[in-house]
Design a protein around this nucleic acid. Structure first.
Length: 904
DNA sequence: GATCCGACATTTT
DNA sequence: AAAATGTCGGATC
């Protein structure tokens, strides 16, 4: 149960309120099981014999009180031994008008009108167990520790400059740091029996100048890898045997300065108990890898986002199975067996946060099942101790970065230890954990390149194995990939045409598709939304779908966020893949979840039709051009002031200037100018020093380009890289525009204005074309099949315009459309002082303009059919159908043409 | 020759 | 500092 569900539940208590039921409704709202609440009602779970009191072990003490001494009552009662021995987390006293409560663990108080409880619902969230692994959101402990570690790391590098000389020494340093972290954690959490034994012994047995610190650590680490305690000096006997691979190899510790030693000891003073292994790993990794340091932990996946993925992938289903069999011990035991057999595989695991959260969630579920078994079998306390069936061996991962991969292994151990504690606490006398030391099992995390490794070798798959592939692999658009990554992409995706346009993450989707050939294997990734938009859709998804897979759940685009300082600028989706089935699919949009028949690669419901780029319009429409592209590093472009200054000084230069319009200029009503100099005037133009300088700068810039076609234009700096301008009137179609607008603002320009490559353009277009382009039905099409910048419109001729199915219409119909177009232009003219941004903002769009658009919408839709469309879904379905019909005809026609030609 | 995209980039509030 | 919203030119076909 998540916190928003709880918030909702708490609100519901007051819809049907009764004093008698309140406390039980309250517990149910926080996810306490029905069986427990029933037994509380009956009384056999109620540990208080006092009337009007309810005492529920480890959870709450609840007391009704009539007079107005609520506060003194709660103070008194929360000191009573008969109460405290059952360790309730909360004490609550109420007269059903006011509620006072105490969090006995955090020593926090609450004093509110009972009615206001929904506002303060989060006070009681620990009842729901959310504190178990996610106590705070601010990660202060993690951040402090990470920064302090960074300080130590920098000093060590500084004092041991040879470390970076070889891969092996870097790897050794990684392991060394990982060992230190383990020791800090161990001395704070009881893995080492004596508290602070590591830091204290270190402080006592090393000199303050740091010169023998490395010797001490060498000896200590050797001890941690030695079973026998014979002939050990006293101070090392206090440490246990750990091993588990972590201390297996002998590694020379780096040399410490006095300062480094001091930081080493200071680090021991931090509160390692509160470290979240799931997040800390990413932070420490970010700190240790210099390139990542500037964006500390930028790409670790937040817990809410991990839950968004693992819940629909497997957790919800496991919980449903649990609910279904909650009264059947045999089935419950079977469920535990099943859980113990599942493999979880993150082929881009980083420092392991998906695996760790999954591990914790699975352990938590197991605990709940065991609690239910205990309740059902009425087992006597201490007669049977349950141990966990979940093992770290079920967790598989691949990680490229060596340090991250060490952190993943370490963090899983830490998570295991933490969950062992939770296991014992929540099961009280019924649960026992095997001693964590010596470390035995470990997550199977392989260091390597996931695009190259055989996934089956990392995570062996035998028939009927239940496997879930999870993770958040790297996203890189084609022009952000480096050489190796391009080769990786080629290695995995060569079999597709135009594979080079794919995002790097496509490798993971392709390999996951290859991996899922069994119905019990499912996969889900957090991914950039790019693979579900625009040109990539046709490259990737036919392959996946043709393999018999389906998208069985998906989250629509959401902005990437985590707790790191600077967030990556990207929009994500989450996509779940499995073998095709008849089950309904789950499509999530923010907090809403829709049950739908199918989810298309565009993450819409309905058909799986995918649009291909087209070079020419499918419908009878004029050619749309790509705007003129300068490639000048800004040198040919002038602001108003710059231009005026030059023209004042050299009046003859005014003829070299043309207005330049891209999306921003057109939408926001900005004015910019560009130099547009004929080849035959260049000699004269360069006599003006500023122009000469600017042209030189263009040459220089183009010469340095990595792209040959740009370099070729270096000696023609007066020319554009690519130009379609022909001095005639045009319709400008901004290439990018905010999704908040109902219509992309388009417009007519005259031949004085050059349309830049930030927009598309149709020259000499008839007015009715404008009508078709700005129509709602076209916007619906653009939104679905076009690319996007984040989630905004991104208009492109090949995807949006050339693919748009529009019927052939008569002259009369065209004339009719023109009337509506002129009406829109008239409405715009009434507000000539306003920019397009103002006119088309959903907040400020003038009513008249809106109505004129709606009239046009109707007129355009009448070109398709007389019966009006009632929804965008209907429009889309109609368009896709028409698209299929028209493309079929088109290809038949093309084939016929070919045949005829070849006969000749 | 033409063009789609951005683990973004820059402006606006 | 957060929110809004579209540049620019490489890489690719």
């Amino acid at each position: 149960m998540n916190s928003s569900e709880i918030e909702h539940n708490v609100k519901c208590i007051f819809e049907n309120f009764s004093n008698e039921e309140f406390v039980f409704d309250f517990l149910l709202a926080y996810g306490i099981s029905k069986t427990s609440v029933t037994r509380l009602k009956k009384g056999d779970f109620n540990l208080s014999k006092v009337k009007g009191e309810l005492l529920y072990k480890n959870k709450i003490l609840f007391k009704e009180e009539d007079d107005d001494s609520l506060l003194s009552t709660i103070d008194a009662i929360s000191k009573e031994e008969r109460i405290l021995k059952h360790k309730p987390r909360f004490a609550i006293v109420t007269d059903y008008e006011t509620m006072v409560a105490k969090d006995l663990k955090l020593k926090r108080n609450l004093d509110i009108p009972l009615q206001d409880l929904p506002k303060y619902y989060s006070f009681f969230l620990p009842l729901a167990g959310s504190e178990v692994y996610n106590s705070s959101n601010d990660n202060e402990a993690d951040r402090n520790a990470a920064y302090k570690m960074a300080e130590l790391y920098d000093l060590l590098i500084h004092e041991n400059p040879d470390i970076y000389n070889s891969k092996e020494t870097v790897h050794n340093l990684n392991i060394f740091l990982s060992r230190l972290l383990f020791c800090y954690f161990a001395e704070d959490t009881g893995i080492f029996e004596v508290e602070s034994v590591f830091t204290n012994t270190l402080a006592q047995h090393t000199t303050s100048n740091g010169s023998d610190t490395h010797l001490f650590l060498n000896r200590l680490f050797e001890r941690l890898n030695t079973k026998s305690e014979n002939s050990l000096p006293d101070y090392l006997v206090k440490f246990p045997y750990v091993n588990g691979g972590l201390f297996k190899d002998k590694i020379e510790s780096p040399i410490f300065s006095a300062k480094a030693r001091k930081i080493l000891i200071d680090l021991g003073g931090l509160n390692w108990k509160d470290i979240n292994p799931d997040i800390f790993g990413s932070m420490i990794q970010a700190v240790v890898i210099p390139e990542y340091r500037s964006d500390l932990g930028m790409h670790y996946t937040s817990v809410p986002n991990i839950l968004k993925l693992i819940r629909p992938l497997f957790l919800n289903e496991l919980y449903e199975t649990f609910e279904k069999h909650q009264n059947n011990v045999l089935q419950l035991r079977k469920l535990i067996q099943r859980i113990a057999g599942i493999k979880f595989f993150d082929p881009a695991c980083g420092s392991g946060n998906f695996l760790i959260i999954t591990y914790k969630e699975i352990r938590l579920l197991e605990i709940k099942i065991i609690q239910q078994i205990i309740a059902l079998e009425k087992i006597d306390l201490f007669t049977a101790a349950f141990t966990t069936s979940v093992s770290l061996n079920q967790f598989y991962g691949i990680e490229l970065d060596d340090f991250a991969h060490e952190m993943a292994i370490l963090s899983l151990w830490l998570a295991e230890h933490q969950m062992n504690k939770v296991f014992e606490e929540m099961l009280e006398g019924y649960g026992a954990s095997k001693p964590i030391l010596p470390l035995k099992e470990a997550g199977k995390i392989v260091q390597g390149n996931a695009t190259r490794l055989s996934w089956e070798e990392v995570c062996p798959k035998s028939k009927d194995d239940e496997i879930y592939i999870i993770g958040n692999p790297p996203y890189l658009g084609s022009f952000l990939q480096n050489k190796e990554q391009k080769q990786d992409l080629a290695f995995v995706c060569k079999r597709f045409k135009s594979y080079k346009d794919l995002d790097y993450i496509a490798c993971w989707f392709v390999k996951a598709t290859d991996f899922i050939n069994d119905e019990v294997v499912k996969a889900a990734f957090v991914t950039t939304n790019s693979i579900c938009q625009g040109e990539q859709v046709i490259l990737l998804w036919p392959f996946v779908l043709n393999r018999g897979l389906e998208i069985f759940f998906a989250y629509k685009s959401f902005k990437w966020t985590n707790n790191a300082k600077g967030n990556a600028g990207v929009y994500c989706t989450i996509i779940g893949l499995q073998n095709a089935s008849n089950e309904p699919k789950k499509l999530y949009d923010n907090t809403m979840c829709y049950s739908v028949k199918s989810i298309s690669p565009y993450l819409t419901t309905g058909t799986n039709t995918i649009i291909s780029k087209r070079m020419k319009p499918l419908s009878k429409l004029p050619v749309m051009n790509y705007g003129s592209k300068i490639v000048d590093d800004g040198n040919l472009i002038f602001s108003n002031e710059e231009k005026n200054r030059l023209v004042t000084q050299y009046p003859e230069t005014s003829s070299y200037f043309k207005k330049l319009a891209g999306s921003a200029e057109f939408i926001r009503g900005l004015e910019r100018w560009c130099l547009y100099i004929d080849d035959n005037k260049i000699e004269f133009a360069t006599s003006v020093p500023e122009i000469n300088n600017r042209l030189k700068a263009v040459s220089e810039f183009r010469r340095k380009s990595t792209e040959s076609s740009t370099r070729e234009m270096a000696n023609k700096p007066n020319r554009f890289y690519y130009s379609v301008h022909n001095n005639s009137d045009s319709i400008i179609v901004p290439r990018t525009s905010s999704e908040r607008r109902e219509y992309i603002p388009m417009g007519f320009l005259n031949g004085d204005t050059i349309v830049s490559d930030a927009a598309s353009v149709i020259y000499n277009a008839e007015a009715w074309i404008f009508g078709v382009l700005t129509s709602r039905i076209h916007m619906v099409w653009v939104k679905t099949v076009g690319g996007r910048l984040k989630t905004d419109y991104r208009y492109s001729s090949q995807l949006c315009y050339n693919t748009f199915p529009f019927p052939e219409i008569s002259l009369k119909q065209k004339e009719n459309l023109c009337l509506y177009v002129f009406a829109i232009l008239d409405e715009r003219a009434k507000h000539s002082e306003k920019t397009m941004a103002q006119l088309y903002s959903p907040d400020t769009m003038p009513i008249g303009l809106k109505e004129a658009h709606q009239e046009l919408d109707k007129a355009v839709e009448q070109c398709y059919r007389l019966q009006p469309f009632t929804s965008d879904t209907e429009r889309l379905e109609y368009l896709f159908k028409l698209y299929e019909e028209m493309t079929k005809k088109d290809t038949l026609f093309a084939k016929k043409k070919k045949v005829r030609k070849s006969k000749i």
